[in-house]
Amino acid sequence: MPRKTDARARAIATAERLFRIQGYAATGLNQIIEESGSPKGSFYFHFPRGKTQLAEETIDLYLANRAAVFRHISANTTGDAPNFFHQIFGAIAAEMIVDDFQYGCLMQNLANELSVLDAELTKRVARGFVDLTEIVAEHLRGCGFAAARASSSAAALVAAIEGARTIARVERAPVVFEALADIFCQRCL
């Protein structure tokens, strides 16, 4: 039996998994509570504002984890844009393979749904895309890219990742990530 103090973490992990697989609107609180094994009273103790608060905290944790991956890859590829591109696309592809192509990007799924449902959650997701884009741009500036080129390349990379996730999920294959890594490396020449 899971520890009761783990109820908050289990609810967030369950929400992330369900939002990534089936989306926000299709995921009900009862499903999250049931699949996380969290008692209903415990759930509302941790998330008094319900699903919206749970989504906020899930977004924040997901973004923190994404940013950590990007920063780790950046630190391991200092000054080396081609290797950075290959590792970023490779990490996303590997994650999708491990998850059997079931999981979309939490941010992409929520962005597709929330713009008409919740302006505040939409702003939080948008800020996440901006933060990830800035991590990439910072790395590229460190590789000698001019500021404007670093910014445009970073925006293109983040957009490409989101599109590639969708294609890889449908095709159930990571080939699109390899193609994107090659194209981005050509931009370095």
Score class of each variant (00 low, 15 high):
residue 3 R to T: 10
residue 6 D to W: 13
residue 7 A to L: 03
residue 8 R to Q: 11
residue 8 R to P: 05
residue 8 R to A: 05
residue 9 A to K: 13
residue 13 A to K: 08
residue 16 E to K: 13
residue 18 L to K: 06
residue 19 F to I: 03
residue 20 R to Y: 07
residue 21 I to H: 02
residue 22 Q to W: 03
residue 24 Y to G: 03
residue 26 A to D: 11
residue 26 A to W: 04
residue 28 G to T: 12
residue 34 E to W: 14
residue 35 E to R: 15
residue 37 G to K: 06
residue 37 G to A: 08
residue 40 K to P: 12
residue 43 F to Y: 10
residue 46 H to Q: 08
residue 54 L to Q: 09
residue 58 T to N: 03
residue 59 I to K: 00
residue 63 L to S: 06
residue 71 R to K: 13
residue 72 H to F: 01
residue 72 H to Q: 13
residue 78 T to E: 05
residue 78 T to N: 10
residue 78 T to Y: 05
residue 81 A to E: 09
residue 81 A to S: 08
residue 84 F to C: 02
residue 89 F to P: 13
residue 93 A to L: 03
residue 96 M to K: 00
residue 96 M to N: 05
residue 97 I to T: 06
residue 98 V to H: 10
residue 99 D to T: 08
residue 103 Y to H: 14
residue 107 M to R: 02
residue 108 Q to M: 11
residue 109 N to F: 01
residue 110 L to Y: 03
residue 111 A to Q: 14
residue 114 L to N: 13
residue 118 D to A: 10
residue 120 E to K: 13
residue 121 L to Y: 05
residue 122 T to K: 00
residue 122 T to P: 09
residue 124 R to A: 15
residue 126 A to D: 15
residue 128 G to T: 05
residue 131 D to T: 10
residue 132 L to V: 00
residue 133 T to H: 00
residue 135 I to C: 01
residue 135 I to H: 09
residue 136 V to K: 02
residue 138 E to T: 14
residue 142 G to W: 07
residue 143 C to F: 02
residue 146 A to V: 14
residue 147 A to S: 15
residue 148 A to L: 15
residue 148 A to F: 10
residue 151 S to I: 11
residue 154 A to F: 09
residue 155 A to T: 15
residue 155 A to Q: 14
residue 156 A to N: 11
residue 157 L to Y: 01
residue 157 L to D: 00
residue 157 L to Q: 07
residue 159 A to K: 00
residue 160 A to F: 00
residue 165 R to K: 12
residue 167 I to M: 04
residue 167 I to V: 14
residue 167 I to Y: 09
residue 168 A to V: 02
residue 175 V to W: 03
residue 179 A to F: 09
residue 181 A to F: 07
residue 183 I to V: 10
residue 183 I to K: 15
residue 187 R to D: 10
